[in-house]
Amino acid sequence: MATPANLPHPTRADLDLPSVLFALSDPERLDIVRQLRSGPLDMADCSLRVPDMPKSTKSHLMKVLREAGVIRNEANGRGRRLTLRSEDLEARFPGLLPAILDAPVQ
């Protein structure tokens, strides 16, 4: 059972292409993934395009990414540590993540 400190994440085998594409279709979520490409970040350190976005909206963005299997969201002290699941995504959908992340930002 998942607790606030131990959120559920899909296994590599359970990653679903429509869910991953949906998660990456939102500009805010895509921007978060681009930030995580450089390495793990504390959730508090992820910057958003809309800086005064409600905390609940930011949490929802992270939830969509986590449930699709794009990121890992794990307890880190009193905060949360976000990690891009690039190896899992590459194994399941070769070339997808670089193709999306390297596309020009509009």
Rank of each mutant, 00 (worst) to 15 (best):
R92E: 12
L24D: 07
S25T: 06
Q106R: 15
R37K: 11
M62S: 10
L41F: 11
L61A: 12
V33F: 15
D52G: 05
M1H: 07
V20C: 01
R49I: 08
L21R: 14
P98T: 14
P40R: 10
A68F: 11
I100L: 15
P18A: 08
L48Q: 03
A2C: 03
L17Q: 14
T11I: 01
R34A: 07
G79A: 05
L7A: 06
T11C: 01
K55W: 09
G95E: 11
S59K: 00
D31E: 11
L96A: 14
A5Y: 10
P18E: 09
R34H: 06
C46P: 05
L7F: 07
F22Y: 12
G79L: 02
L15T: 05
K63L: 11
S38N: 13
R92H: 05
L101E: 08
V105Q: 13
N73R: 07
P27C: 00
H9D: 10
R85L: 12
R92P: 03
N6G: 02
R34S: 06
Q35P: 03
M53T: 09
D16T: 02
D88K: 00
V105L: 14
D42S: 04
R66M: 06
L61M: 13
S47L: 09
E74G: 02
A44I: 14
L61S: 12
R49E: 09
T83H: 01
P10F: 06
L24M: 13
A23P: 00
R49Y: 04
A13P: 02
L24G: 02
V20M: 06
V70L: 13
G79Y: 01
L21P: 01
A44R: 15
A75L: 11
E67V: 00
L61D: 07
A23F: 02
K55M: 12
P54D: 07
R81W: 01
E87C: 09
A44F: 12
G79Q: 07
K55Q: 06
G39T: 01
L61N: 15
E28V: 02
V33Y: 11
H60E: 09
L97Q: 14
L41T: 01
E90V: 03
R80G: 00
E67S: 09
G39Y: 08
A2N: 10
P18F: 10
D16W: 05
R80H: 00
R34L: 09
D26R: 00
S86Y: 03
N73Q: 04
D16R: 07
A103Q: 10
R37V: 04
R12S: 14
S59V: 13
S25I: 08
M1R: 05
L61W: 09
T11S: 15
R66P: 11
P27N: 03
L7T: 03
V33P: 05
R81A: 06
A44W: 08
E90Q: 13
P51Q: 02
V70Q: 03
D42Y: 13
L30W: 13
R66V: 02
F22M: 05
V20F: 01
K63F: 04
S19L: 07
R34K: 07
T83M: 08
A91H: 13
L97F: 12
D14G: 07
L61R: 14
G95C: 11
Q106T: 11
M1S: 10
D88F: 03
P51R: 00
A91E: 15
A99T: 11
R81F: 05
M43R: 13
R72S: 15
P10V: 05
I71F: 08
G95N: 14
L15I: 08
D52W: 00
L82S: 00
P4T: 04
V33A: 13
A2W: 06
